[in-house]
Design a protein around this nucleic acid. Structure first.
Length: 280
DNA sequence: GTTTAACCCTGCACGC
DNA sequence: TGCGTGCAGGGTTAAA
């Protein structure tokens, strides 16, 4: 789950979960449930800090969602590759790999489902929140209004790195993963292996605009759902941006702009897709 | 400083 | 049909 999917999830949570009070919290007896709440030694250390609390705010930081509680504590959630939140009711059976269930006073529950358990969740106090290493290291958000193309150009020039891994580096800029970094680079007309300090100011502006446009569009389409098991929103509904993808997963298919077949290469173990004609 | 590989998991598609 | 292999949208770490 990358920035657009996390942002759609945050908005769903804000509409449907903020304001609700947690009646009970359960860490399920699944094989890997303790991996999900790995920062808590025992189930109870996690659940007791949630029970009786009201959720007051849903915030996003990079790919993290922060659910603020009425006592100042914060439930920090990272979805990893297969984690997701799902709203449900008592009558609906729990999907496989449901590791955590929060049941609300007003009815209904919130399930955290994660087959591959690369995701995690933990509760922290407001004071300790600032000390969470992963959150401290999250770089500027590309949709933040303080993120200007001039700032971005300065950051790019300071580094001597290939664009693709740099865009995916959460300490450089937050929110992009494998799909959207490819789509942004295509929209900017830049190759994955262009060096960050080699861009003209025109190219910097193109990259900057591509970031805004691709991410905003993906949010508007409610995220990318590639396969059945992949991302769905809070209510189990898939996104629709997959139909808008220009390069990701389209190896061998004609470029939507110039009809040249899309190429794929492995970079650091991850597949990258690009148009050899449109990107340089 | 930058890049690569390995690792943490499960599920699925694919080829034999 | 069954089995092994590789791969998947993330992030950390150690080593090159």
């Amino acid at each position: 789950m990358e920035l657009p999917e996390v942002e759609v999830m945050r908005r769903d949570l804000e509409k449907d979960v903020v304001g609700r009070k947690i009646q009970s919290a359960e860490v399920r007896p699944t094989r890997n449930a303790m991996r999900v709440v790995r920062r808590h030694g025992k189930r109870k250390e996690f659940t007791s800090r949630l029970e009786g609390r009201k959720i007051t705010k849903a915030e996003r930081r990079g790919k993290y969602v922060l659910l603020h509680l009425d006592n100042g504590d914060v439930l920090v959630v990272h979805f990893g590759m297969s984690g997701r939140f799902l709203r449900g009711t008592k009558r609906q059976s729990l999907p496989p790999h449901t590791h955590v269930v929060l049941t609300f006073h007003q009815g209904g529950d919130l399930r955290f489902v994660d087959p591959r358990t690369f995701g995690e969740m933990f509760v922290t106090t407001a004071d300790e929140l600032g000390k969470v290493k992963e959150l401290q290291h999250i770089a500027i958000d590309p949709l933040d209004h303080v993120f200007t193309w001039q700032t971005f150009g300065g950051l790019l020039a300071q580094r001597a790195s290939k664009l693709k891994p740099l865009l995916m580096d959460q300490k450089f800029i937050s929110g992009l993963g494998n799909i959207y970094s490819d789509e942004v680079l295509f929209a900017a007309g830049l190759r994955h292996d262009r060096m960050s300090d080699s861009l003209s100011s025109q190219e910097v502006r193109r990259l900057y605009r591509a970031l805004q446009e691709v991410l905003q569009e993906a949010i508007r389409y409610r995220g990318t759902t590639l396969e059945d098991e992949a991302y769905v929103d809070l209510f189990g509904k898939p996104g629709e941006f997959q139909a808008e993808l220009k390069v990701y997963g389209r190896e061998g298919q004609p470029c939507r702009r110039c009809r040249t077949p899309i190429q794929s290469v492995k970079i650091a173990g991850r597949s990258s897709y690009y148009c050899p004609q449109c990107q340089s």
